[in-house]
Computed example of a mutant assay.
Amino acid sequence: MIIAEIQEEIVDEFSMFDDWMQRYEYMIELGKSLPLIDEPYKTEDNIIKGCQSKVWVHAELDNDKLVFTADSDAIITKGIIAILIRAFSNQKPQDIIDANTDFIDEIGLKEHLSPTRANGLVSMIKQLKLYAVAYQTQLN
Rank of each mutant, 00 (worst) to 15 (best):
M1V: 12
I2Y: 15
A4I: 06
A4K: 10
E5Q: 15
I6W: 04
Q7N: 05
Q7V: 02
E8P: 05
E8D: 08
E8Q: 07
E9Q: 08
E9D: 09
I10T: 02
D12G: 07
F14N: 05
F14A: 03
M16V: 12
F17T: 10
F17D: 06
F17E: 07
D18H: 08
D19K: 05
W20G: 13
M21T: 06
Q22N: 00
Q22M: 01
I28G: 06
L30V: 12
L30Q: 11
L30G: 07
G31D: 13
K32W: 11
K32S: 08
S33Q: 06
P35L: 05
P35Q: 05
L36P: 02
I37T: 13
I37W: 04
P40A: 06
Y41M: 11
I47H: 07
G50K: 15
G50L: 14
Q52C: 02
V55K: 00
V55F: 10
V55E: 03
W56L: 05
V57F: 15
E60W: 08
E60P: 01
L61P: 09
L61H: 10
D62G: 08
D62Q: 12
N63G: 03
D64Y: 12
K65N: 07
K65M: 04
F68K: 05
F68L: 08
T69Y: 03
T69L: 04
D71Y: 08
D71F: 09
S72M: 15
D73I: 03
D73K: 01
I75W: 10
T77D: 05
T77R: 04
K78N: 04
I80F: 01
A82Y: 13
L84V: 13
I85P: 08
R86T: 14
A87F: 06
A87D: 03
A87M: 04
F88G: 08
Q91M: 05
D95V: 06
I97S: 09
D98E: 15
N100C: 01
N100G: 01
T101R: 05
F103G: 00
D105N: 03
D105M: 00
E106K: 07
G108T: 14
G108L: 14
L109C: 15
K110M: 14
E111V: 13
E111Q: 14
H112N: 12
S114Q: 01
T116M: 08
T116V: 09
R117M: 01
A118P: 15
A118K: 14
G120M: 13
L121M: 15
V122A: 14
V122E: 15
S123A: 15
M124A: 11
M124H: 09
K126L: 14
L128Y: 13
K129F: 12
K129N: 12
L130R: 13
A134Q: 13
A134G: 12
Q136T: 07
T137S: 11
N140K: 10
